[in-house]
Nucleic acid binder design. Structure first.
Lengths: 298, 298
DNA sequence: CGTCATTACGGAATGCGTAATGATA
DNA sequence: TATCATTACGCATTCCGTAATGACG
């Protein structure tokens, strides 16, 4: 046997007033149906909850305990309802966001700050994965948002450019280029040992670099995919490298960053990526929020 | 707007099966009413919980969160019901029991052990008060049970004799009575300094003692109400005293206990006391349980 | 006789099941 | 055409409110 929320509301009212008349008034109903609801509740629970005669109403022991649970049921019911509404409205919930690598840390933390300020009840699940992996998981619905670099299938995904920055040249301390005290043109680097990006795992940077400097088997001394690795190799004197401006934040000692000449301004782009048909309201809120505050200065 | 338990059960079933047909089967109903219940629930919550077309059913973000709460509501409802039943059956709940003083500790702990073994889900609230206070609070319904000594109003209370014990004579170490090596008759004590019970606060023991020995202003050197105080005074050589046998457990050094002669056997009675009209099932269980195991050897 | 919980009864609303509909692959 | 959620409709049940009843001080 089972009881209803109406019965519980009736019981709580009677238990609080200890008077059917006043309880009925509070519930905006008449005594008879209230009386019946209590009877039904008692039959459903199989327990006498209220000891009553024509003069007084009081709770039985079981009634006292049940009152506590009844109140709990009511607040849980109402909070469940509100939570669902907040989630649908995009004011609460969870969005799963992926980011490429350490190089996006600056933007990512900014995003986290902006979101937690505008939507304190939205929780962001973070996943680190490369662009290709992001697009896969987006299509499978395993994540809601991606922070990735071009190229990606513009027809399948909606996107927003949220950050762009300069490409810099990372050289070891004391390198002769540091003494020029002016922007370096890629032409001047043809003889320098270059630490290069993997065309597979870091295709974006790979493309960016080969567009401005001719890479051959001779000058490319290493091929890596992570900016952090790259900086370590530069610091170790293994060569020079093209890195995004935010890399200066990483703080590897023994490396200097030099401006470049003859490149398009701020060529390094970061996009927010999502599936157009994504129905996670929290994700929509995140998109709106980031769009409002874009471009994001890392 | 409000939803019902039926709607919640329907929602949980559909959310688990992600298929209206199978969910309906599991719920022992046909699809159409199930469909309607889900619609009503969504209207009540004001939120789309299930994304469905004619080919697939899946949870929305709000639906996922609501599912968790829905399950919680169901278990809370069923546990509330069970708890109420257990309380009415006397298998769980709280009974408020009063006891007189340190002299009843032995019986009290035995009772606590017996109860917690037979009824692990019954909680006993303990209150220390003298017999008179117990009868007052029993009448006011502020406690359920009393552990007290006669006299009390036998017409107002139901009672059960649960323990009786000898009265002993407490004397300081080295007292000449200890050398007799036989039961002492109260007649032999007429010249001894006697530590006496308060006729107000410890009326039971007072009556018991004056029934066997003549107490005058001369031999009664102190008047106290607690057995513990009495033992301390005896140990300090202030006099001798009549004490219940369980006092030997208290372990005050410097005191010896001697058997008495010419008294009725085990004259010290302890009764369990309750209001006949008490309706606390836990208290009834305690009464039954104690009755079954009485008399209680402390 | 007044108070207050309960039963009696008529009308409205709700919910089920069967049958029909509609949309999709 | 097959599948599966939804709407249409008839019938039983539930529930409210008004009126009557019954118990107690």
């Amino acid at each position: 046997m089972t009881f209803t929320f109406d019965q519980i509301r009736c019981f709580v009212a009677v238990a609080e007033e200890l008077h059917f008349g006043r309880a009925a008034e509070q519930l905006q109903m008449t005594q008879p149906p209230l009386s019946r609801q209590i009877q039904k509740l008692e039959r459903a629970v199989g327990v006498q909850l209220l000891e009553r005669d024509n003069r007084k109403v009081e709770l039985t022991s079981a009634g006292q305990a049940f009152l506590v649970e009844a109140r709990r049921l009511l607040v849980l019911a109402s909070s469940s309802l509100q939570q669902a509404q907040r989630i649908q409205a995009g004011a609460a919930g969870t969005a799963r966001i992926a980011f490429t690598a350490a190089s996006t840390f600056g933007v990512l933390t900014t995003i986290l700050n902006v979101i937690s300020e505008s939507y304190p009840d939205i929780h962001l699940d973070l996943y680190e994965m490369v662009t290709r992996e992001q697009t896969d998981k987006l299509l499978k619905g395993e994540i809601d948002l991606g922070l990735a670099r071009p190229p990606f299938d513009k027809s399948a995904f909606a996107s927003r450019l949220i950050h762009r920055e300069e490409l810099l040249l990372a050289v070891p301390d004391g390198h002769w280029l540091t003494e020029l005290d002016r922007p370096i043109h890629p032409r001047e680097l043809s003889a320098e040992p270059l630490i290069m990006y993997s065309p597979i795992k870091a295709r974006y940077f790979y493309d960016l670099v080969v567009r401005v400097v001719s890479v051959t088997g001779e000058n490319a001394v290493h091929t890596v995919s992570q900016v952090l690795t790259m900086l370590c190799l530069v610091a170790g004197g293994r060569g020079i490298a093209f890195v995004p401006a935010t890399s200066t934040r990483i703080g590897i000692s023994g490396v200097q960053f030099l401006p470049l000449d003859g490149l398009p301004p701020e060529p390094v782009e970061l996009h927010l990526l999502w599936l157009r048909e994504n129905r996670n309201p929290a994700a929509r809120s995140v998109i709106d929020c980031i769009t409002r505050s874009a471009p994001i200065s890392s």
